[in-house]
Structure formats: C-alpha cells, structure tokens
C-alpha cells in the first residue's frame, strides 16, 4: 500500500522585495590605525550587537577629504572586528569597480541616515537606520501609524514616526516606533519607543501591564513595572539614564 508517488511540482522559490535596517559605517579619516582603535572601542560597548552584523560602508565623507584607502583595506579592517560588509555606497567609479571585484554590491546613496546622537563626529561613526533598499525620494517624514485591531502575541508592528494603538497589545507582541507610542487598550506586550535613539520620545498607555518598555534603548522589565499603578493612564519618559513612570 505504502508506495511513494512523485508529488506534484511545487514552486521552490519566490522573489520578494524587502527593506532592512542595517548599520552604515561612515569614515571621516583615512588613518587605518585611528579607525582600528575606534572600531575596537565601539565594538567593545556592544560586542553581541556588532558580532556578525551586516554593514554598509559609506565613502562619501572619505572621498570629500580625498582619503586614500582602497575598498579592500577598509573591508579587511571591518572584517577583523567581526562585521560582515554587504556593500559600499557613495564611492567613486574606481571604488565601485574595486567593490564589485570583491563581490560586494554597490548601493545607491539616496536613502537617509539618522545619526544616533549629535555628539561631535569621531573618526568613525556607526549609524543605524539607513535602509539598504532604494527608498523613494522626498518621502514625507514622520510616518505615523494607527492600529485599530488588537496586536496579537507574536506580531510585530514598527512605525517610522509615532505609533498609536487603539486596541490591546497582547503578551508576546512587540510594538516599536522611532517616535512616541500611544496605547489606548491594555499594554501587555513589549513597547519600544525611540528605537533609533530619540531620547525625547515617550510611551503613553491607559493600562500598563507590559512585559518590557524601552525608550532609546533604556528599558524596564515587568518585575519593575508591577510596582507602578495599573489600570490607570501613565506616561513613561526618559530622565537621564532612568525611565520615569508617572500617572497622567
């Protein structure tokens, strides 16, 4: 009875377009020793975050100061720090050819970058938030998002601007925004505001039962949150290095 018959041919592949958030390395000096040292410092701050991280190298600034590094030299040094370069952008024709010879794609320079902080610019600066996919020029910012249905366990919602949810956010769900977050149902999942480092962003919710809340990377877990009043509207803001939860 159990005779295996060839199953009907099914599609084994599919092309889809996607946009990713990838760190971009902007070089402002061609001194390899300086770059090496500052990369070591940066990586040591968050080794797990940078380990095997994809990376795009932006050469515009380097070319503006007529830096004399070859693409191969740059790639070698970032690989030594555990990055996995996935292309360059803003390079000259010569640099683009060098990149292609190394099997690295050349990306367009149209996408925007959001600097993490506006501290003085060091010799190297890693900025998250640039998109590898081509983005439409003149895109209006900020892009706020309104969610009217419950955000279920396992779902993730990301807003490039403010995120407004007028339903519950279930345990196991994750909502993220580059700006503020407002939740008008119960907030039981994770809420991360200012994910690109905007310390001014806030979280507002009418019933705080969250698993985690975070603003600009500073977070509090459920155990800490349980001490605060529930079933009453609160706002969460960053005060220096600590999250402040206040009733509204």
């Amino acid at each position: 009875m159990a005779i295996e018959t060839p199953s009907a041919k099914k599609n084994v592949l599919e092309f889809k377009s996607t946009s990713l958030v990838t760190p971009v390395l902007i070089l402002a000096s061609d001194d390899l020793a300086d770059i090496n040292q500052q990369l070591t410092e940066k990586v040591s701050q968050a080794p797990e975050f940078f380990k095997n991280s994809p990376l795009i190298i932006d050469l515009q600034k380097l070319n503006a100061i007529a830096g004399k590094l070859t693409v191969e030299q740059i790639i070698t040094v970032v690989r030594e720090h555990g990055f996995m370069p996935i292309g360059i952008r803003g390079g000259s024709d010569q640099q683009n050819d060098q990149a292609l010879a190394l099997n690295l794609p050349v990306h367009s320079t149209h996408s925007q970058t959001a600097p993490l902080t506006d501290k003085k610019v060091p010799a190297t600066l890693v900025t998250a938030g640039a998109e590898t996919a081509k983005t439409i020029e003149n895109r209006p910012l900020p892009e706020n998002k309104l969610i009217t249905l419950p955000v279920r366990s396992g779902q993730r919602v990301y807003a490039k601007g403010d995120l407004i949810v007028i339903a519950t956010v279930s345990a196991g769900a994750e909502i993220m925004a580059e700006g503020n977050i407002h939740v008008y149902g119960s907030l039981r999942g994770r809420a991360l505001a200012g994910v690109l480092g905007n310390a001014e962003s806030r979280i507002f919710c009418s019933d705080l039962q969250a698993e985690l809340v975070s603003i600009a990377g500073i977070y509090k877990l459920k155990d800490d949150l349980m001490r605060h009043p529930q079933q009453t509207p609160v706002q969460i803001a960053l005060d220096g290095e600590t999250l402040n939860i206040k009733q509204i």
Partner: peptide, 13 residues
Amino acid sequence: VRDSDRMLGILSS
C-alpha cells in the same frame, strides 16, 4: 490562551 492569541495574529495576517 496565549497560543490562541498567536493563532489569531496569524489568522489576521
């Protein structure tokens, strides 16, 4: 209940 919630998310997306 949590698994059902997850399933509801899949149903809606």
